[in-house]
Structures are given as C-alpha cells and as structure tokens.
C-alpha cells in the first residue's frame, strides 16, 4: 500500500504504524466523566467502507496522519496532517 503523505508524497505503508479510528483524537474533556472516557477508550466504529484512521510516519517525518481509506478496497481518498485536522487548519 502507498500512503499519500501530504508533505512527502506517496510513501510505502511499511514506513507507517497503524493506530486505528481517527475518533481517538476526540479525547473527552476530563470533566466529562467515566462513561465518556469508557466510550472513547473502548468503542470504535468498524465500518466496511470509508474509514478515517490514524497512521504514524514512524520511518519518516514522525507525523501523525488522518487517512481516509475504504476498508473494502483499500482505496485511499485522502490524507491530512492530524495536527492540522485537530487545529482546524487548512492542509
């Protein structure tokens, strides 16, 4: 697989470490309580289809990316720097 790194272009997936659902970026407010954290820690969507997920460029620039991938075809619809996604910045 190739991951289209937003800064470095297509790079082999072997350079990356996979984490999973990009919802992991939505850490609840510490005051939100246990139930919210339990949901955050243990509940994941597992769609057969388009999925937003986190990949870490471990053998690369150490960027975390939000990659949109179709889990049924491996088609990659886009990749953004997670930092920019979180900050609401453009690419």
């Amino acid at each position: 697989m190739l991951i289209p790194h937003p800064l470095l272009g297509p790079r082999d997936a072997q350079e990356f470490t996979y984490l999973g659902d990009a919802a992991l970026m939505q850490r609840p407010d510490p005051q939100a309580g246990e139930a919210a954290f339990a949901d955050y820690v243990f509940q994941r969507d597992n769609p057969a289809g388009v999925h937003r997920e986190l990949w870490y460029h471990e053998y690369g620039d150490r960027s975390w990316l939000v990659v949109t991938r179709d889990t049924t075809t491996h088609e990659i619809l886009g990749a953004k720097l997670a930092r920019n996604v979180k900050m609401g910045l453009p690419e």
Binding site: T17, L19, L24, M25, R27, L54, Y56, E58, R62, S63, W64, L81, A82, R83, K86, M87
Partner: peptide, 12 residues
C-alpha cells in the same frame, strides 16, 4: 510514538 500522538493529535 505515544508522546507524539499526544502532541499532534490531542494537544497541538
């Protein structure tokens, strides 16, 4: 890796 996750994905 986890510290980078926190730095980039949780508290940029």
């Amino acid at each position: 890796r986890n510290m980078e996750f926190a730095r980039q994905c949780l508290w940029p």
